[in-house]
């Protein structure tokens, strides 16, 4: 379970995140929508412990991130817009390294099973990542998340630049992980993906969570209207 309590972040005079209250249950997929600078990535970065909150608390399975950063890292996996991997290592070597950092050691067969689940072609496993497409890197990122046995998944624009087929594969995997009880917080600009994949959708603007919707209670057209009316609010 993920929880934000009055989570606030200031960068100098700029209020990047303004008293965010949010709870994401186990197995729930929560999509954060918003224009650039709305506070989506800042929220994720605080949960990952990359930046400290100015005030408020971020909790992962009831552990406060700022106090138990080392412990909470064991619980999370992170897939950014571009999954950055070591280009001179193979996909399998990257997977072994990142799962090793998380404290897991797997056999080749076990790692191949993760990449297979993530949809990566077996023949790509031993190729250097420098030859991978963005979609293939994304799949390695998913395999890493699977290998880390994460309880919480943070996705920052994960489908940006992926072709529809790859996006669809990605959505299926997230749904499967959700079924296994993984809490997911996804920042995205893709309204259709948010509608189809998320259980709940939050629309952020200028650091504040302006609206919260259940995806099954809103149509795509209505979501689009609400999104546009929120992000077009005057400063």
């Amino acid at each position: 379970m993920l929880k934000a309590e009055q989570l606030t972040k200031r960068f100098g005079d700029h209020l990047a995140l303004d008293h965010l209250d949010l709870t994401i249950e186990s197995g729930e997929v929560y999509c954060l929508l918003g224009s650039n600078g709305a506070g989506k990535s800042t929220t994720i970065n605080i949960f990952l412990g990359f930046i400290p909150a100015s005030s408020g608390r971020a909790l992962i399975d009831d552990l406060e991130v700022s106090v138990n950063n080392h412990a909470t890292r064991n619980l999370v996996a992170y897939i950014p817009e571009v999954v950055n991997l070591y280009p001179t290592l193979t996909g399998l070597e990257n997977l072994a390294f990142f799962s090793g950092l998380a404290g897991f050691r797997y056999s080749r067969a076990e790692m191949a099973a993760f990449t297979d689940t993530a949809g990566l072609q077996p023949e790509a496993l031993d190729k250097r990542v420098s030859s991978y497409s963005k979609g293939m890197r994304q799949k390695v990122g998913i395999a890493i998340a699977l290998a880390k046995q994460a309880r919480a998944l943070f996705l920052d624009e994960p489908t940006s630049g992926l072709d529809p087929h790859a996006s669809n594969e990605f959505a299926q995997i997230i749904t499967r992980l959700s079924g296994q009880g993984v809490s997911t917080l996804m920042a995205t600009h893709d309204l259709l993906m948010a509608k189809n994949l998320g259980h709940r959708i939050g629309i952020m603007h200028q650091g504040r969570l302006q609206q919260e919707l259940r995806s099954d209670a809103v149509s795509y057209a209505e979501l689009t209207d609400r999104y546009l009316s929120t992000v077009n609010q005057p400063v």
Binding site: R73, Y78, P80, V82, L85, A102, G141
Partner: peptide, 12 residues
């Protein structure tokens, strides 16, 4: 390479 985020999101 941008790998630092991936590294520091692990428990190292």
């Amino acid at each position: 390479n941008g790998t630092i985020k991936m590294v520091l999101s692990a428990r190292v």
